[in-house]
Amino acid sequence: MTRKHLLSSADLSRDEVEAILDTAASMHDVQRREVKKIPTLRGRTVINLFFEDSTRTRSSFEIAGKWMSADTINITGKGSSTSKGESLRDTVKTICAMAVDALVIRHSASGACHQVAQWVDASVINAGDGTHEHPTQALLDAYTLRQRLGSLDGRHIVIVGDLAHSRVFRSNVITLGRLGARVTVVAPPTLMPSGIGDWSARDGFATSWDLDQTLYAASPGDRPDAVMMLRVQRERMSGGFFPTEREYTAGYGLTRERLTRLYAATPDLPILHPGPMNRGLEISAEAADATSSAILDQVSAGVAVRMAVLYHLLAGETEAAA
């Protein structure tokens, strides 16, 4: 792979996704060793530039870089969002003047990573841009699902929740689609992204306003092979997208009752959530902690997948790519 940036999940072909996931599997083995450090990125500098709060993504990128012997530095701050502050271009040009190899960027604005990639020489990795994309999350979700289900060809993955504001959804429909999965996305009409009708038709995924119809499809072939619950972003709910949390849970939550009914058909159904969870809102405690829950597996996969991404984007320049 000779890719420089990872800005969108659409950047990656199926072969590239599979190469990253295969590398991630061997990185996962590294994680289980007593001494976890490998020398692959020795002498390289990776900056985690987080303009927006993050715990798991930032720390997993940091650990990934450190285990690969890169010098990783975290820069956080919420600046650069007003016309009075320093421009984004000035901020990243300043940082890159310090001879940086890669910028891992989280920003509250959609497209920020695309713009930065035009301005700097370093590799840019999108660690979540606004309500646009989160490609490494989609890769770690795909990794987790492959661990549970094997090949994703023809598998039916159901994604439920606040699609309008979800960068996880936007990246996942692309990456899961690349791997041959059938995807159905479920949300109330007010939390569907604009233009979803044309978009889903063009990209070959299904949409629904009815969670129960999707989960308990009459035909066994249409039942889900995995369910991914998305976080309801309370901080973005000022517009009154639904009347009450109680009503949301009744329509779109993975409640204990829904879990019981799902388990009757598929006892080992993988349940995913990108976190952080609102327990009791989009996911019940029973579902989050269920035996088939893959939520902690996702976190664990996060480090391995990010090691693999750093490897494919950075190590290829100094040694033969895997």
Binding site: G130, R170, P193, D198
Partner: peptide, 15 residues
């Protein structure tokens, strides 16, 4: 503009 492009790009929509 609110539509498929704003949905895909995740940009605040102007219907």
């Amino acid at each position: 503009h609110e539509g498929e492009v704003s949905g895909r790009l995740g940009l605040p929509a102007w219907p």
